[in-house]
Amino acid sequence: MAMQIGAPGGASDEPEVILDINTTPLIDVMLVLLIMLIITIPIQLHAVNLNLPQPQPQPPQAPPEVVRIEVDAASTVFWNGLPLADAAALEARLQAAAAQPVPPEIHLRPDADARYAVVAGVMAATQRAKLDKFGIVGSEQFLSPAAPR
């Protein structure tokens, strides 16, 4: 029981259909890919030897001193708990702190009722003394009760 394709008896005017795949274009594509792979492999294996310096272990450094500057509700400025007479005394202390080999961290804690001009003056004096490690602490007093802590 064989299956016969075409007209019975084998006589027809139409050419016989070839059901084979033409593999010539596939072989051409494979050869091009193979040539590109062969050309690019030496580039990937190219290496430059470098003599990089080895890291030297640094001795552990002590954390910098922390200076607490507080401004109370009466706009009095305190240096580590000691009241300062005026802005010139603050400037002198900041200049002395900046002259240290390891400049200290400045933590400013203003009161909510302190005058803005005094707090801004402390920040400006710190900037003039070129003390870069500066932060404002105690802002949790300004959080609303519903805000997460």
Rank of each mutant, 00 (worst) to 15 (best):
A7T: 09
G81Q: 01
A124F: 06
T23W: 13
M123T: 07
A129P: 07
G81E: 02
A114I: 05
Q95D: 11
P15F: 12
I136P: 03
D132N: 14
V77I: 15
Q4P: 02
V118G: 03
M1G: 14
A112M: 06
A147H: 05
P25T: 09
P63N: 05
G121D: 14
G138S: 02
A73G: 10
P15M: 06
L108K: 04
M123I: 13
P42A: 05
V29R: 12
M3Q: 02
A120S: 15
G135T: 09
V102L: 08
A97S: 13
A85Y: 02
L50V: 11
A2I: 13
I106L: 15
L108W: 09
I106P: 11
P42C: 08
A73H: 08
E65W: 03
N22H: 06
I43D: 03
V122N: 05
I21E: 13
D111S: 14
A120E: 12
A88T: 12
P57Q: 07
E140V: 00
A112N: 08
P59R: 08
R68C: 00
R68G: 00
A87P: 01
P42Y: 15
A117W: 03
A74S: 14
I69Q: 00
E70P: 00
N49S: 14
P101T: 02
A129Q: 10
D132A: 15
Q100Y: 01
A120D: 14
Q95T: 06
R93P: 08
A47M: 11
P145H: 03
I21A: 15
V102E: 09
H46S: 08
A88Y: 08
E14M: 14
A146Q: 11
A62W: 00
D111I: 04
A147T: 07
P64V: 10
T23A: 09
D86H: 03
Q61K: 12
G10F: 15
I69L: 15
L50N: 14
P145K: 00
V17S: 03
Q127N: 14
D72Q: 00
P55R: 06
A146E: 14
D111H: 13
F134K: 02
R128V: 13
I136W: 03
S75L: 04
V122T: 09
P8S: 04
S144H: 04
Q100P: 04
M123F: 09
D20A: 12
R149I: 05
L82D: 15
Y116L: 15
E65N: 02
E16K: 03
Q54E: 12
V137F: 01
N49K: 12
H107I: 08
A88P: 02
V119T: 11
E70R: 00
D132R: 10
I5C: 01
A96E: 15
A124N: 10
N80C: 04
A62Q: 11
D86M: 06
T24N: 07
K133M: 07
P15Q: 09
T126Y: 06
I38G: 07
A146W: 08
P145T: 04
R149P: 00
A117T: 13
D72G: 00
I38P: 00
A74Q: 13
N49H: 12
Q141A: 01
L108Y: 09
P104F: 09
K133R: 15
D86G: 11
G10R: 05
Q58A: 12
R93D: 06
E16M: 08
A74P: 01
I21L: 15
